[in-house]
């Protein structure tokens, strides 16, 4: 049975970017930049977008701050000229659970100028999600939890720690809404090959309410270099420390 990284559009992107190599320390301060591709549903072959250019970029910087973990996240949608920036103070735990954060949204639309931008403060207080001090309509007392972009940091550290246990949690999707009944499992290793090289990757898969199964591929150095969820392919572009 084919693995998700073997989707035609994902393989095309993998061959374009190549596989990562060299040392990496997921606990060290650093920044990773990913390009995001969408499979073009209008072609029979299921290739990436017609231009074969990324649709969005994701930049995640991470560092330990005292007992906490700090993440800076910038997701820019290249085609639509909108950006979401998140500055999050997180627990230094298995799931990099965010404790407090600021979310800023901006959009380059001329007609929307001054009309669509906003900033929102989020926090988890007494295991409850608060957005600008208010609970969302669908709220609950959280168990273990994390946010979608925090999983990018978490899987690297799980792999480095050889953590293969099943994690069940609540998801703060987009740092804005609660999704219940989530779980992350270790799916073993997968040999990933491109036209030029090969790596053995740890594979973690995320399932749950509103989640299209998402597979995270982490190399032997604990570096997340590929995330695949059906038509979305997120691929490591570069890293800086």
């Amino acid at each position: 049975m084919a693995e998700p990284w073997e989707y035609i559009h994902t393989k095309t992107v993998l061959n374009k970017y190549g596989l990562p190599a060299g040392a990496f320390d997921p606990e060290a301060p650093g920044e990773q930049t990913y390009d995001i591709y969408w499979m073009n549903i209008r072609t029979k072959q299921g290739t990436p977008s017609r231009s074969h250019e990324p649709e969005a970029t994701l930049r995640i910087s991470a560092k330990n701050e005292g007992e906490d973990r700090h993440l800076g996240i910038i997701c820019s949608d290249l085609k639509f000229d909108n950006t979401t920036e998140i500055d999050a103070q997180c627990e230094n735990n298995a799931l990099t659970s965010p404790k407090t954060w600021t979310l800023k949204y901006s959009n380059g639309s001329q007609a929307g100028k001054g009309l669509v931008e906003y900033t929102q403060k989020g926090e988890i207080r007494n295991s409850r999600l608060l957005m600008d001090g208010k609970e969302p309509a669908h709220s609950k007392t959280l168990g273990p939890y994390t946010a979608d972009w925090c999983l990018f940091d978490a899987v690297q550290r799980l792999s480095a720690r050889k953590d293969t246990t099943k994690h069940t949690f609540d998801l703060i999707e987009e740092f804005s809404m609660i999704r219940e009944n989530q779980y992350l499992i270790y799916r073993g290793t997968s040999e990933i090959t491109t036209d030029q090289s090969a790596v053995t990757a740890d594979v973690y898969c995320h399932y749950g309410e509103s989640v299209i199964p998402t597979c995270y591929y982490v190399d032997a150095n604990g570096r997340l270099f590929l995330v695949v969820s059906t038509r979305r392919t997120v691929i490591l572009k570069r890293e800086a420390s």
């Binding site: 649709e55 085609k79 000229d81 959009n107 639309s109 669509v116």
Partner: peptide
């Protein structure tokens, strides 16, 4: 105020929604 996401629903819907919230 926010462009047509064409065929990229996940990212497109986030932008359309955030623009509406703003």
């Amino acid at each position: 105020i926010c462009r047509d996401p064409r065929n990229t629903a996940e990212t497109g819907d986030i932008a359309s929604t955030r623009s509406a919230i703003g």
